[in-house]
Nucleic acid binder design. Sequence first.
DNA 1: AAAATAGTGTCTATAAGACACTATCAT
DNA 2: ATGATAGTGTCTTATAGACACTATTTT
Lengths: 245, 245
Amino acid sequence: MHDDRWTPPRIMLAVDLVILTLRDARLHVLLIERGVAPYQGTLALPGGFLRDEEEDIEAAARRELSEEAGLVDVHLETLGVYGRPGRDPRGRVVSVAHLAIAPSLPEPIAGTDAAGACWMPVQEVLSTEAELAFDHQHIVRDGVERARGKLEYTALATAFCDETFTISDLQQVYEAVWGVQLDPRNFYRKVQNAHGFITPAGPMRRAEKGRPARLFKAGPVRVLNPPMVRSAQATLPHSAKASRS
Amino acid sequence: MHDDRWTPPRIMLAVDLVILTLRDARLHVLLIERGVAPYQGTLALPGGFLRDEEEDIEAAARRELSEEAGLVDVHLETLGVYGRPGRDPRGRVVSVAHLAIAPSLPEPIAGTDAAGACWMPVQEVLSTEAELAFDHQHIVRDGVERARGKLEYTALATAFCDETFTISDLQQVYEAVWGVQLDPRNFYRKVQNAHGFITPAGPMRRAEKGRPARLFKAGPVRVLNPPMVRSAQATLPHSAKASRS
DNA sequence: AAAATAGTGTCTATAAGACACTATCAT
DNA sequence: ATGATAGTGTCTTATAGACACTATTTT
């Protein structure tokens, strides 16, 4: 079928990171201004090549997460493979994209590298045309889609929160990621009924403006049952809908 | 931070295929007996290296699908990346696993290559220890998990069926992939209520033993609403459960 | 007291699961 | 007629969404 001397082609393997977080109730993604060609000066996802032939892919992703964003111990999962020929002018580069979820952080970045790192609202990234380097806008879109879907049937939302959080903190996550408004009363009930989703974190409380809320921490369960269905209606209590009757 | 002459390592990229189908109401996966080292003589997933540096990854997967299984025009999606160092004794090989779903086929294989190809019940593959080459058992497990999950909220089940099919054909898919038994009456209602899941295919029918059934074809919708929830109970009408009362 | 957020309860529509019943074929 | 599979209807229970109401804080 083919030449006996044939050997497989060698390609370059990169990891890219879609790092999502919440900043003032809006979903943001971490972008870095590229310092070198190609796409010098253009915004791009943090990432880089495998360091050597022995490095594990997830280890490389965690290394970039630490080097470029100063993040450790955050949720990290494989998002997909992006390897279309021609996506990188340097040659055949196949990138393994990862999705990372970080709790809200005060600083834009506390990392070591990456002077030009910034948190950018996802909405802006996805609405603009040809703003990001490579196929990174497409990767961001896929990452956000993944997060939206997993919020429904897994406990991923807690990855956006600090160690302890209130139920409205959690609601803000759902509202920001899904881009909808939810009824706090029904949300409260659904979260409580999802067995193992959240567990009380001591009798502590926290205040600021209204009645102090109970604190919770992530529960033991990763798959929600019943799931937090994102059904058709966005539950804007009784507004909008335009005039109808 | 690093040497100016540093260049990224070059790795070998492979594609592997988890091809699932139904054979006499059981879920099967296509395996091939390896003809060359490493793992010569061991069962493995069909797959192979990228042919050249220009070949697109999905194109390579479709090529292997055709060469090794004789399949064209079947459902194909990326499953994941398997690149742990040491998984292949030939060096650093990163494999992009794909999930393919084929309708029931009479022949074991009609392909060109692959003399030693065979359909193997998934249950056997997953229950045996260290039976498959490389990390392929793990990949099969992930592929089956993916299929199980997607059956719930997408129209993937129709990919297991021929162009036209009956509702019990579809039910067999769910029962085989999930490994449960479902009530035909409730299944009928749920499938019909999932808007756009299936559409009638002419006034044609088909018979064999009982009353002829209506024929349907895959509908336009890819995401099911409402989903086909695989809830806790397996709905074995009124059997088993062991003696209890 | 007023404003604001936290948390509970109640009502209604919808969907899931259990299962009786009717329909249409081959033999 | 009988057996087998297809398809419909009905009942009960659980859950989603709408929303009234109570609780606990700050100002």
